Simulated scan of single mutants.
Amino acid sequence: MKHLITIAFGCLCFFCFSCSSAITEIHDIRSALLYDFQSGQNDRRLRLAVYARLNEAAESGGFLQIRSPASDYVWTVEKPLFVQDAASGYTWIGSSDIVPPPEGFFPSGRYTLIYTDEAGKKTETGFDMEECKSFDGLDLGEYTEKRLGIFNESGILLGYRSEKTDMSAEETAEKYPGSFFTRIILISEDGLSAVLREPVFIEDGSVQNQGGVR
């Protein structure tokens, strides 16, 4: 379930690319901390989702690097995801599976994102990270938006449902081919973090009864 999105992270948000210059440029960037509850009390994962919107000069390749505030830790995303936002027509490049440094948390402060295209040209921008919270210290009352994410067996987000109506397993399979499990996704008001509730596998019965928005 490591390939999520996000969030996309709507989480939260999301992403795309477009352009008209010979030089690769980053036009926008979105990031969010993902508090990921898996199947048990001790099975929790803190992750970071980061996506950048590039101009048309960007190829559908290249890689990303993310530097921590003190520049003493660098993440390299060799095969970033390209996410199409059908609503805006944009394409975003990034990852929803960036894990913390060995100390187990992401330091707060200013991060640097560097995109290197297939020709070796680089462009960079910065984004700010809020202070991480412990899982036990999360106040779910701060997460004002609720979505039901539908995923395939590999953990790829296929779509969202926010309606409170039931949808049978058959209807879900028809609308979202390959659907395998659902997760309730709670998004903070500022969009900078999200809580992913435990996955619920789609079996006989409605999606709502299998973990949908109540």
Rank of each mutant, 00 (worst) to 15 (best):
Asp117Thr: 03
Asp117Tyr: 00
Glu118Ser: 11
Glu118Tyr: 03
Glu118Pro: 03
Ala119Tyr: 05
Ala119Asn: 04
Ala119Glu: 11
Gly120Pro: 10
Thr125Tyr: 10
Phe127Pro: 00
Asp128Ile: 12
Met129Tyr: 01
Glu130Asp: 13
Glu131Cys: 06
Glu131Asp: 09
Cys132Asn: 12
Phe135Val: 08
Leu138Phe: 08
Asp139Ala: 11
Gly141Arg: 09
Glu142Leu: 14
Glu142Ala: 11
Glu142Ile: 04
Glu142Lys: 12
Glu142Cys: 06
Tyr143Gln: 08
Tyr143Ile: 04
Tyr143Ser: 04
Thr144Trp: 02
Thr144Ser: 14
Thr144Tyr: 04
Glu145Gln: 09
Lys146Ser: 14
Arg147Phe: 07
Leu148Pro: 00
Leu148Lys: 03
Gly149Ile: 00
Gly149Ala: 01
Ile150Cys: 10
Ile150Ser: 04
Ile150Gln: 01
Phe151Ala: 02
Phe151His: 02
Leu157Lys: 06
Leu157Ile: 13
Leu158Arg: 04
Leu158Phe: 05
Leu158Thr: 06
Tyr160Gly: 07
Ser162Trp: 02
Ser162Gly: 01
Glu163Arg: 01
Lys164Gly: 13
Lys164Val: 07
Thr165Leu: 11
Asp166Pro: 10
Asp166Phe: 05
Met167Gly: 02
Ser168Phe: 11
Ala169His: 12
Glu171Asn: 08
Glu171Val: 14
Ala173Tyr: 15
Gly178Leu: 11
Gly178Ile: 09
Phe180Lys: 07
Thr182Cys: 14
Thr182Asn: 15
Arg183Glu: 12
Arg183Pro: 01
Arg183Lys: 09
Arg183His: 11
Ile184Ser: 02
Ile184Phe: 04
Ile185Val: 15
Ile185Lys: 00
Ile187His: 00
Ile187Asp: 03
Glu189Phe: 03
Glu189Gly: 04
Asp190Ser: 12
Asp190Ala: 07
Gly191Ile: 00
Leu192Cys: 05
Ser193Ala: 05
Ala194Thr: 06
Ala194Met: 09
Ala194Trp: 02
Val195Ser: 00
Val195Met: 04
Leu196Lys: 05
Leu196His: 07
Leu196Phe: 15
Arg197Lys: 14
Arg197His: 11
Glu198Asp: 11
Pro199Glu: 03
Val200Lys: 15
Phe201Leu: 01
Phe201Trp: 10
Ile202Leu: 12
Ile202Tyr: 01
Ile202Pro: 00
Ile202Phe: 05
Glu203Leu: 14
Asp204Pro: 01
Asp204Met: 13
Gly205Glu: 06
Val207Lys: 01
Val207Pro: 00
